[in-house]
Design a protein around this nucleic acid. Structure first.
Lengths: 153, 153
DNA sequence: GTCAATATGACATGCATAATGTCATTATGA
DNA sequence: TCATAATGACATTATGCATGTCATATTGAC
């Protein structure tokens, strides 16, 4: 009965579950940082360096899709805490390359590894197929919403 | 091949799609508000009153799961703009009931209706079953993450 | 090689979305 | 009645960015 209405209603709920989902995910990340000297934003910097290799501040900003000025602050903090260091950039003398220190690498890899363990626990009950479906739907919905929001600009 | 790894990888992506999804959804809401005199937070107040009927500030705060002090500010603004009005509360003389004005009701119902139309467009390509699956998965993941984050407190 | 355009770091400011703390004034309920 | 809780009002702080500006360094077109 009224299958179309159910569909729209579920879609609506799915979209607005994004906030609690994000908050829950961020809370888990934060919880995993307790005891380390990392903040969430330092963790983000380390993750980019670990995942994509050493980079400049503007490169990190592009990948995180936030402004370089803010990433600069994040990197300065991370560097003050000894998790990253600057290296000369042969391609641009004013823009040093940020690289993980040994400490930084150890810390971020520990954290990512324990986050992976968490993923396994969270995924425990769910089928591979259902997760794939969910991902596909969420992608499609996000793209569609982006398009609609963009049009009105 | 390595199905388990794919599953975890998809789950990871699904979880972190929550941020772009939320941002896209919020951008759509904002875009829909252009031209009205509503702000996003006034819209939130109106939606609660339209959906659950007239309520006090603390009740709205409980439903939005944010602090009553902030909801107070939101409601004061919304009232100054003429979208809601106060009514005497027989159950608590210091805590008036917030109610939609005719203007407020018209405005919020127009907005919700056009947002519903957007939902229909966004859902167009997707099957009812897949949306239901996605919603179920996202619910399960959120609950699981909440539990894990809570444990560490 | 010159020179305009661009990139970068550094710094300042602003803004939205809250959380937190406090106070005075009611209400409420045991 | 009286301790306790609820409420509105106000002040302060935090987080996570965006935006603007500047000086300087760098790049690329010519």
């Amino acid at each position: 009965m009224h299958n179309v209405i159910m569909k729209i209603e579920h879609l609506h709920q799915l979209i607005w579950m994004s906030r609690p989902l994000m908050q829950a995910a961020e809370a888990c990340v934060e919880a995993g940082l307790v005891g380390t000297d990392l903040t969430v934003r330092m963790r983000a910097v380390l993750e980019m360096l670990d995942k994509y290799g050493e980079q400049t501040v503007p490169e990190i900003a592009a990948r995180l899709e936030i402004k370089r000025q803010y990433v600069q602050i994040m990197c300065n903090e991370t560097r003050e805490s000894g998790f990253i260091e600057q290296r000369a950039n042969p391609r641009h003398k004013r823009s040093p390359i940020m690289a993980l220190t040994d400490l930084g690498r150890t810390v971020i890899e520990d954290i990512i590894s324990s986050e992976l363990t968490l993923m396994e626990e969270v995924g425990g009950d769910l089928s591979s197929e259902d997760i794939a479906t969910a991902l596909r739907v969420v992608h499609a919905v996000t793209d569609s919403l982006k398009q609609h929001a963009g049009e009105r600009e």
